[in-house]
């Protein structure tokens, strides 16, 4: 009888230890928000693009072949997007004359008429693409806006960030992409 009582106590103790361990594991499982896009981490190829600009011109991946290009997802109502725009403008002005360089803005969760006004008011000079079905955003696996991706001439997404980027970051990423380097 005493032996069986001891056995039950040991079993209860074992179950308690397992439960405590499980609770601790769950408690320390923090969902940290990544700042580097998954495509960059996986050194993945850039998704195919087949969209139209606000002016109705078609833009495809084929036109971007052998170029180093920057893709920026943004919209008019997102405050970090608005804060990021001056840096993007400075960066674009620095490189727009370079033949192997391209920059694209892709609208995420906003309508074309509003975006036309926003682009005009902010003096955005790079092509802004309409993504009415959100397919480009899904293909890139966006989790918000702004998000920026830098694609190397071989079509691999080498650098980028979730959230606003600075001129210095953009220049570093462009140099890395041209040098065939990954940012991660």
């Amino acid at each position: 009888m005493i032996r069986s009582q001891f056995r039950i106590r040991w079993i209860a103790l074992g179950i308690a230890v397992v439960l405590v361990a499980f609770t601790v594991v769950l408690a320390v499982q923090t969902r940290s928000q990544p700042s580097v896009p998954r495509l960059v981490l996986e050194h993945a190829s850039a998704p195919q693009l087949n969209l139209k600009t606000l002016d109705g011109k078609a833009v495809t991946s084929a036109q971007l072949r052998s170029k180093t290009y920057v893709v920026n997802f943004f919209n008019s109502w997102c405050i970090p997007c608005q804060q990021e725009t001056p840096a993007l403008k400075t960066f674009y002005d620095q490189h727009k004359s370079e033949g192997d360089f391209a920059m694209l803005g892709i609208i995420i969760d906003d309508d074309a008429p509003t975006m036309r006004g926003y682009v005009r008011d902010r003096g955005i000079g790079w092509p802004v693409l309409v993504d009415p079905k959100g397919s480009a955003a899904l293909d890139y696996g966006t989790t918000g806006q702004p998000e920026t991706y830098v694609v190397a001439p071989d079509g691999v997404v080498v650098c980028g960030t979730l959230g606003p980027s600075s001129v210095a970051e953009l220049n570093t990423w462009l140099a890395a992409a041209r040098a065939g380097q990954q940012c991660t």
Partner: peptide
């Protein structure tokens, strides 16, 4: 929902969830 906590794509109104809802039938 890829950008929310504890919501399915069906329940969420985030841009990503709406895009996924549009994308699935296609």
């Amino acid at each position: 929902c890829p950008v929310c906590e504890g919501q399915s794509v069906a329940d969420s109104n985030s841009p990503q969830s709406r895009a996924i809802r549009d994308d699935i039938p296609r």
